[in-house]
């Protein structure tokens, strides 16, 4: 992935890193709170509507946040490392929240092993795939804007996208996700039982 394009003016750390990640985090937090409270709405129809809306937004903010964070960071002058870092902030915070939640039920070791469950792995592999997709989009956009003959498609983003697609198949589609779950549990038994 190329470094920050010289045609883009580098903005402040807050504008290029904190703000894009914060937007996703705020959306995530709000949708989480709204979804968690929606069942208290007396009207069943309204309850279902609010549940649907907040759940879809929450799901998108967890799974597809990099599609917003990465391009915004790119066009605000963030370097490749910064773009990746900014894009990973929302899923990492979500993961930390989940770890705190599950620590109620599991030992410290089990809680740490929970990090490597297929869903979390999929979230992070998916995040890299979405970052790569965003990178290609941003390059193409910059190429159009500046007219410079830069390569849009390079090996690394294509590899990341392919890995994400393969991950999606292996973790979620292959046997409906059941096969990977049983592998994960086999390792769990070997480690903890």
């Amino acid at each position: 992935m190329n470094q920050v394009n010289t045609a883009i003016q580098k903005t402040s750390y807050t504008r290029r890193i904190v703000m894009p990640a914060a937007v996703v985090l705020v959306v995530m937090a709000l949708s989480f709170i709204v979804y968690g409270s929606a069942w208290r709405i007396d009207s069943y129809a309204l309850h279902r509507f609010v549940s649907h809306l907040s759940a879809v937004v929450l799901f998108i903010s967890i799974g597809f946040g990099p599609l917003l964070v990465y391009p915004v960071a790119y066009f605000r002058g963030a370097g490749v490392g910064e773009r990746i870092y900014a894009s990973l902030i929302p899923p990492i915070i979500w993961l930390v929240k989940e770890l705190i939640r599950v620590s109620e039920f599991f030992t410290f070791g089990e809680t740490m092993y929970f990090i490597f469950n297929p869903l979390n792995i999929m979230i992070f592999i998916g995040a890299f795939g979405l970052m790569a997709l965003s990178e290609l989009f941003c390059r193409r956009s910059m190429k159009k804007r500046t007219g410079k003959p830069e390569k849009v498609i390079t090996v690394l983003p294509v590899f990341a996208i392919c890995t994400a697609i393969a991950g999606l198949y292996i973790f979620m589609i292959w046997g409906g996700g059941v096969h990977m779950f049983y592998i994960y549990m086999k390792v769990y038994k070997a480690l903890f039982i």
Binding site: G36, W39, Y44, H47, S51, H52, A55, V102, M172
Partner: peptide, 20 residues
């Protein structure tokens, strides 16, 4: 039941029950 909604299968760790 009135407290249910279609996304319960995804929330509070329920995704582990495999009801995608």
């Amino acid at each position: 039941p009135p407290e249910s909604d279609p996304w319960i299968t995804w929330s509070r760790g329920s995704i582990w029950y495999g009801l995608l």
